[in-house]
Write a protein that binds this DNA or RNA. Structure first.
Length: 975
DNA sequence: GGGCTGGAAAAACAA
DNA sequence: GCTTGTTTTTCCAGC
């Protein structure tokens, strides 16, 4: 409230809302981010932690999931309910908590989903059990709606439906991983105070961010309503053309990390999305990422006293933005029924309110469109605790399986707001992607949700730079409806029994948001440059007899959305062979796109730590080379005496920076009978695959480094809120340092539809009918009661292991095995081999023998029997995603960065990579943090600040430009 | 006339 | 600080 009374003219805000944002705000509750610190949050404090599911997991003080019938739902409980119910409109002193204009929101759920049942309380009463009813009303103060851009600046060409709706859900990843990232992540472990996270939909994912909000001073009265005001915002309308560099996000540390509010949690509030930006080329190891995140959190806490002169070097604009604090927001929820008080419900509603993450920004929405009540309201929406969009969900559970019958094309040029639509995503063979829910025998239609997810090596989550775009017209046969969940546009498509619960996705296009716009969002740490791959993520919520909802999710194969990439980068879609004896010599046919006669195929073996152990350029048959096919001779493996399959990878290179993603390949022992596995086309994906995998893709398996690093334990696949399963604790203990990777449900799954171990867990753990899948704590496959062992499960044992038949193994071990080398050390990280090569400084020509990290035939390499490897250290490395060691991961591109593994001793050169290379890095212990900032240009204020800080060993902020190719922004703090 | 597309120039970045 | 190569974003034109 105070914020509204602050420097920013309230009138201005009103105008904005009245003009365009009103509808959205009203529906999505921008208030979330505006929670006033001053609000009486007796419960909030105690329950705030809930929002941050990650934290919950790691924080004893947080509501133990065990106490809750449902997994993450529990987390939502206290926090949400308590917060909302108690916050009310009055302050402790009895004074009205909300002095600023408020919006009375009715049936946020309904609005959110446009479900009738939630739309009106009355209806809810009549139709839904109290437990499923949402609070009748919520009162919001005018939030500091932060459109990612000024409404007036919307490109004329933009269609309403294509207007950006920013996704920020990715914060989840960080949250999720924190518990495992490092013990040092104290900030994360502390109870999250932010009520923001109470939102089930986004709460968890953004938990951190949310927490930050609440716990952060950002909510302090002084904060301006528009925390994320961009230059344009301040100055007014902007041109459709990016006003770069002004538009470039120039974060000040403050901007990202709000100061502490005495009223808030005593524990440092993690700042919004701590996630590190990762692009194809810049995927820095998770290690760094997470560590950095934790550090960021710590820094945040430290910086709250503002004693640090972080402002130096920070663009005024940035300061302006950061200094402002969002208007305080009060959310009043009036429970309709007894159950409304339940945390779940409250949480859900809260989420619907737009989550407290609106601090980031409000995306210009289509007022009327969203305001329309949705006619179809599948029961799935009745669940008050739908999982957040960045939650990793299984693709199948019990009899149900959500499957992508027809995968989308690997390329689809996304359109900008300034452009007209570029049409719906198409299927490779023409037509459009098709999704079907199997095992559902009810007559009630369900709603299929579709959103654009990430396709990098990290956990699947809404893509910050892309949004689904609803396509309409006479050519579109599938009806759809847009909704926004957690700032992520979601297309809702009915799944009708009469259509066999099958939907042709011909109504989904992809909208590209300008990098500068997204990067400017508060809390956004991802970078858009070269982050152009996405996946279509489908979700369906199946109501269970128990009244709960089972949520299934499946992601498509990666889709390259950039024009250039689509035109120039080689893409391997299929490979005729995925395994062969070490002797090599066999011809392998690669199918894909953009192959050239000069294309090179490089085989690479990586050690578990990511080091390249071996590299070999395979011979290609130029005469047979075609744009869509390439014939390559499998090179002999470096070691002809291996006793167990060795997983390697290869990629096609068309020249500098034009490399395909890694593809998997397995060398078999020379004396091992070859099992015919080709042609790939013949391969039939296992009917049931891991959770996140879509498993239907006949396509080859785009090789994702972390595919192999799938979390062995079920819990790992779960949302952060879940407590580690017994198996995990037993088999994979130690995991504070466990890499996030273990939780990663990478795209691996989608290759060949084989689920990674982790995926399997996800899929199996949730007993149908027992409780909402999303709320159930995943259990090891072996323990899963009602789930039959999914066919093809054996594949999950080692997704990366293609054909070699693997002896039957128990599911449990299977799940635990991911970290085992059996699953190839994550190898590839798309498009970065060169970096590694350079690092290795090994000869580039011909086979290279690098220091072997592991011996051939070691148990690690043996696909079976599956053994659990209890080596935390290795896990840490594994989680670096593609198996690259921290150093490697940090050394993206030409930059050589030392991993910032530890807070106090690591020597970080990330953001200062360039400076360091130029001898400006004075070295010494520093904190390496990721933080938003300005361009990475050495001459940029950020870089200068960083150098200065480094040289003087003073805190500073460095952020590599949005175009970071190697390392995300980070904060370098001289110690 | 609007939606789709393919190209490509301009601008922004990064090396 | 300048040059050059890349990548992103905006425009255009044709279907």
């Amino acid at each position: 409230c105070r914020r509204l009374r602050g420097s920013r003219p309230l009138e201005g805000i009103s105008l904005r809302w009245g003009r365009r944002d009103w509808g959205l705000a009203k529906h999505y509750g921008y208030a979330s981010s505006n929670v006033s610190p001053a609000l009486p949050l007796p419960t909030a404090h105690s329950t705030l932690p809930a929002p941050c599911h990650n934290l919950q997991t790691s924080t004893p003080g947080i509501i133990p999931p065990a106490d809750h019938p449902s997994g993450y739902g529990a987390a939502l409980d206290g926090g949400a309910a308590g917060y909302f119910l108690s916050s009310g409109h009055t302050r402790p002193d009895g004074a009205p908590a909300l002095e600023s204009p408020r919006i009375e929101i009715t049936s946020c759920l309904g609005l959110y989903h446009n479900n009738n049942q939630f739309f009106h309380d009355v209806e809810v009463e009549d139709v839904l059990p109290s437990s499923k009813r949402s609070p009748s009303t919520a009162t919001l103060s005018l939030p500091s709606l932060e459109a990612y851009r000024d409404p007036s600046c919307l490109s004329p060409a933009s269609s309403l439906s294509s207007r950006s709706c920013n996704s920020e859900a990715s914060s989840y990843e960080s949250n999720y991983s924190y518990p495992y990232a490092s013990p040092q992540t104290s900030p994360w472990q502390s109870p999250c105070v932010s009520p923001k996270t109470t939102d089930p939909e986004e709460g968890f994912p953004r938990g951190l961010g949310a927490c930050t909000l609440l716990g952060s001073p950002r909510h302090s009265p002084s904060t301006s309503p528009r925390a994320s005001v961009t230059e344009e915002s301040w100055l007014g309308a902007r041109s459709s053309r990016p006003a770069s560099p002004c538009n470039k996000r120039k974060y000040s540390l403050n901007g990202r990390q709000p100061p502490y509010s005495p009223h808030h949690s005593p524990t440092p509030s993690p700042h919004g999305s701590p996630r590190v930006s990762v692009t194809d080329d810049s995927w820095l190891g998770n290690t760094t990422q997470y560590t950095s995140s934790a550090i960021v959190a710590a820094i945040n806490a430290l910086t709250t006293d503002s004693s640090l002169d972080l402002g130096d070097g920070v663009p005024v604009k940035s300061r302006k933005t950061t200094l402002e604090q969002p208007p305080s927001v009060a959310l009043k929820v009036e429970p309709v029924g007894e159950d409304l008080g339940s945390p779940h419900f409250s949480s859900f509603q809260h989420i619907r309110k737009g989550g407290f993450c609106d601090q980031y920004l409000a995306v210009p929405q289509h007022p009327y469109q969203w305001a329309k009540p949705k006619p179809l309201s599948p029961t799935s929406y009745m669940s008050p605790t739908l999982p957040a969009l960045d939650w990793q969900l299984p693709s199948h559970s019990g009899p149900y399986e959500l499957r992508i019958e027809v995968q989308p094309k690997s390329h689809h040029r996304a359109h900008y707001e300034t452009e007209g639509s570029r049409g719906a995503v198409k299927a490779s063979a023409g037509g459009h992607p098709i999704v079907q829910l199997h095992g559902y025998l009810e007559n009630e239609p369900l709603m299929l949700q579709l959103f654009i997810g990430t396709a990098d090596d990290r956990l699947l989550r809404p893509h910050a730079f892309y949004q689904v775009h609803r396509i309409t017209g006479k050519t579109v046969s599938t009806t759809s409806h847009e909704a926004i969940l957690s700032n992520t546009k979601v297309l809702e498509i009915p799944l009708l029994p009469e259509n066999s619960m099958r939907a042709v996705i011909d109504c989904a296009g992809i909208l590209k948001l300008r990098n500068s716009d997204i990067e400017l969002r508060k809390g956004e740490t991802d970078i858009g440059r070269k982050n152009t791959r996405v996946r279509l993520v489908f979700r369906v919520h199946v109501p269970q007899p128990s009244g709960r909802t089972l949520s299934l999710q499946v992601a498509s194969n990666p889709i390259e959305c950039s024009q250039r990439s689509a035109q120039e980068l080689p893409l391997v879609e299929k490979q005729s062979t995925d395994s062969y004896p070490v002797v090599g010599g066999k011809k392998m046919v690669l199918s894909g796109h953009n192959f050239l006669q000069d294309s090179k195929v490089i085989f690479v073996e990586k050690a578990p730590d990511g080091h390249h152990v071996w590299e070999m350029e395979a011979k290609t048959d130029r005469d047979l080379c075609k744009p869509n096919s390439l014939v390559v001779e499998i090179p002999p493996f470096r070691n002809q005496r291996i006793t167990s399959p060795v997983h390697v990878s290869f990629y096609v290179c068309n020249g500098k920076r034009k490399r395909s993603q890694y593809q998997r390949f397995t060398y078999l022992p020379a004396n091992v009978p070859i099992i015919k596995t080709e042609p790939t086309d013949d391969y039939e994906p296992a009917p049931t695959c891991g959770p996140v995998s879509q498993g239907l893709s006949p396509l080859p398996r785009p090789y994702y480094s972390q595919q192999l690093a799938m979390p062995p334990d079920p819990s790992s696949c779960l949302v952060a809120g879940f407590p580690p399963c017994p198996q995990r604790s037993t088999l994979m203990p130690a995991a504070p340092g466990v890499s996030p990777k273990l939780h990663d449900l990478s795209p691996a799954a989608y290759t060949k539809g084989v689920a990674s171990p982790g995926h399997c867990h996800l899929g199996l753990p949730q007993p149908a009918g027992e409780a909402p899948a999303v709320q159930d704590v995943p259990r090891p496959v072996a323990t899963h009661p009602g789930s039959p062992l999914p066919p093809g499960l054996e594949h999950s044992l080692c997704p990366s292991s293609p054909s070699p038949p693997l002896p039957p193994a128990t599911q449990e071990p299977t799940c635990l095995q991911p970290c085992s080398p059996a699953c190839p050390p994550a190898t590839g990280r798309p498009q970065h081999p060169p970096s590694t090569v350079r690092r290795d400084k090994s000869p580039t020509a011909g086979p290279r023998l690098l220091p072997e990290v592991h011996e051939d035939g070691s148990p690690n390499l043996a696909p079976i029997p599956v053994t659990v490897k209890r080596e935390p250290e290795e896990l840490d490395q594994l989680y670096l995603d593609d198996g690259e060691c921290p150093q490697q991961q940090l050394s993206r591109g030409d930059e050589h960065v030392t991993p910032c593994g530890s807070v106090n001793t690591s020597k970080c050169r990330g953001g200062l990579a360039r400076s360091s290379q130029r001898g400006r890095d004075t070295g010494g212990p520093r904190l390496c943090l990721q933080a938003p900032g300005a361009g990475s240009s050495p001459s940029s204020p950020w870089a200068r600040t960083a150098r200065r800080c480094t040289q003087h060993r003073t805190p500073g902020v460095v952020r590599e430009g949005s175009g970071l190719t190697s390392v995300a922004r980070r904060v370098v703090w001289g110690v």
